[in-house]
């Protein structure tokens, strides 16, 4: 069981950022370490403000540190693969393979099996893909890898649509969001309600030893979860929310802010689970109405033309459901639901 992290009171700088120097050396970020590996090196072709590039760099540098730099990475087809390896350039400074869109978990299984056959248990395998490669086309191979408990950490960088091909709907696209295949037209604009896969919970249902969600708003948390994931053997799953300025219709400078709002609204619950049980939850610090999150993104712009308060209310209800399901709000906080007697 993972101990719930003790809240540390940091010197506040108007955001949740914290001066790294104030931490004990062993708690400082991997990225602050001059010896970090730069696994995904600069010069790649990701868009400005790409959440996926940020998340991948933090995850892989942390996995490298946790394994004494013995990581083999597998990439599904997608933005991360395309922007990192337009040959003859490659941004990868670790052993890396891309095979297909839907088979990254299986390729990772093969590498892990090869290493086991060769007695190279020191080599660790990290597979990664976007939400399309994970929840849709790669779902079968991912579930197989989970079910066999193969020694692979799989990381999903979830930007909630097929961004590489031009922002089409995936099984991770949220309700009401506009994509190129769920246009904001007709009587029910955007992606329908009642669809989509909650992959962290599906991963938990496989009873694998470690499942966690994170966002690129809290990179220290992302690093910590990567370290904990690497401490486990067998199948592990990390689901990282990575805003996409292009696909979400958001400003590049808002990537971190949107990731934080996704968590603070309750739309994206941040938690850890072991063996199918939730063991820690990142509490919401300032409960924020979903409208604050929605109005910063053009994919929801249709909700603010005409009267779509009912749709916004439905989205708020989804956020509130997460708050209840995961206990995202501290009962002692002012944001906690008030009990009334009548």
């Amino acid at each position: 069981m993972i101990p719930v992290p003790t809240p540390v009171r940091f010197y506040q700088v108007g955001s949740f950022a914290v001066g790294n120097r104030l931490l004990d050396p062993d708690q400082r970020t991997v990225q602050a370490d001059t010896a970090r590996t730069n696994s995904l090196d600069s010069g790649h072709r990701a868009c400005q403000g790409c959440g996926e590039a940020l998340g991948a760099r933090y995850v892989l540098d942390t996995a490298m540190r946790a394994s004494d730099n013995k990581v083999v990475a597998v990439n599904a087809t997608g933005c991360l693969e395309v922007f990192s390896t337009p040959y003859p350039e490659s941004s990868w400074r670790l052993a890396w393979i891309h095979s297909l869109f839907g088979n990254a978990p299986a390729v990772a299984t093969g590498i892990a099996a090869a290493m086991r056959a060769k007695g190279r248990l020191d080599v660790r395998v990290v597979a990664q893909g976007g939400d399309g490669g994970t929840v849709d086309i790669g779902f079968g191979t991912l579930s197989g890898m989970f079910e066999r408990n193969d020694d692979v950490l799989y990381v999903c960088y979830d930007n909630e649509a097929y961004m590489n091909t031009g922002v089409q709907r995936s099984g991770a696209t949220p309700p009401a969001a506009r994509t190129a295949t769920t246009e904001a037209v007709g009587p029910a604009p955007g992606n329908p309600f009642g669809q989509g896969k909650d992959l962290p919970r599906i991963a938990m249902a496989h009873e694998i030893s470690y499942v966690a969600t994170a966002t690129v708003a809290d990179l220290h948390d992302l690093e910590a979860k990567t370290i904990r994931a690497m401490a486990h053997r067998g199948a592990r799953y990390l689901h990282v929310l990575v805003p996409c300025p292009l696909g979400w219709g958001a400003a590049s400078k808002d990537t971190i802010r949107l990731a934080r709002l996704a968590k603070e609204t309750g739309l994206f619950p941040v938690f850890e689970a072991e063996h199918g049980e939730v063991v820690s939850v990142a509490k919401i610090r300032h409960k924020t109405p979903v409208v604050e999150y929605l109005k910063a993104q053009r994919r929801y712009a249709h909700l603010f033309k005409g009267d779509h308060q009912d749709v916004i209310d439905q989205l708020q209800a989804l956020a509130d459901r997460n708050v209840g399901r995961y206990g995202l709000v501290d009962p002692t906080s002012a944001d906690a639901p008030q009990l009334t007697e009548d």
Partner: peptide, 10 residues
Amino acid sequence: SVSIGASAAG
């Protein structure tokens, strides 16, 4: 796909 990963890992 598993064969691909295994073969690529030597």
